[in-house]
Design a protein around this nucleic acid. Sequence first.
DNA 1: TCATACTTTCAGGAAGCACTGAAAGTATGA
DNA 2: TCATACTTTCAGTGCTTCCTGAAAGTATGA
Lengths: 171, 171
Amino acid sequence: MSAGVEKARERFVSTWGEMASRWGINKTMARVHALLMASDAALSTDEIMAALGISRGNANMNLRALVDWGLVRRVAVGGERREYFQSEKDVWNMCCRIARERKKREIEPVIGALEECLREAGTGKDAAAFRKRLTELLDLVRTLDFVLGQLARQEKNAVMPKVLTLLKAMA
Amino acid sequence: MSAGVEKARERFVSTWGEMASRWGINKTMARVHALLMASDAALSTDEIMAALGISRGNANMNLRALVDWGLVRRVAVGGERREYFQSEKDVWNMCCRIARERKKREIEPVIGALEECLREAGTGKDAAAFRKRLTELLDLVRTLDFVLGQLARQEKNAVMPKVLTLLKAMA
DNA sequence: TCATACTTTCAGGAAGCACTGAAAGTATGA
DNA sequence: TCATACTTTCAGTGCTTCCTGAAAGTATGA
């Protein structure tokens, strides 16, 4: 078979790592994720360490984070004691998991903080313009929160693909 | 007037900075942006330096980046030689600018790289599953690219708010 | 053209975040 | 219960990114 496949996998791993770090996600975490996505079989910690040239501690930490995000599962491989890891293979599910976690970790706290700002800004006339902008911003962030929520509920709710189809049709 | 307004502005600045840094955006850049959003009047470099306690070089760099992103404008204040800065006040426009830039800087290059991976992966049977996953991923990223593109075109295209309204109605 | 008032650049330093590796912890089967 | 095979933790280190401040650059009006 063509030798390019391995090069392609490597390129994929580094592309994914690069992209993730621009979106505030740990580069190594994304590389581990990409490696698992690119691999048909489940991989052990040692295989991941070897493939990416990272330490045991680092591998462990990032694998745990990926499991927390719901992007990777631990799997038992017949008879073996060692743990193996396997990524969620459905990219749409993957996207839903990411939406759910970012909503929870990054959007919801901001909504709370903006509400607090609004409360703190009081009712004075000098803050009227500020309050208006805060209100509009809060509205926007709530919309984003709503959209991510819909994405996150995907498994129970098929509305998102319909909307996307519709959006393309309307364009 | 209530003394809380200034506290509210400060909280807003730090909230915005915190959020941005979790999404891969320079924290100081976001704080400058927030300061300008919270301020009714245009501000000079010196005022920004004083308000945020940052150096001239830092202020200059981040202001330029904000201007590049289309989130902040330089404005002339009658007779004065010094430059003043003012943020885009419409939050929806702001959102469109961010969508446009992130699409251009971060999504489009990834699409190119994934296409290259797919080409490089060849046609061998051993890479069939990898190719399948790459294809699905590419599809997903292209969808995101499309959505950001629609957002970015907002000024010429009112489709996005309609879709959002619809999404809420369908939920 | 020069003095002035302001802006921009960039080398070096500081801060924060990620990584290593060895030691401690845990589960398994004999 | 112990030996073994593996996983997890975390203090110290390294690396990247960000920031500073002084020097160079630029525009303006006299």
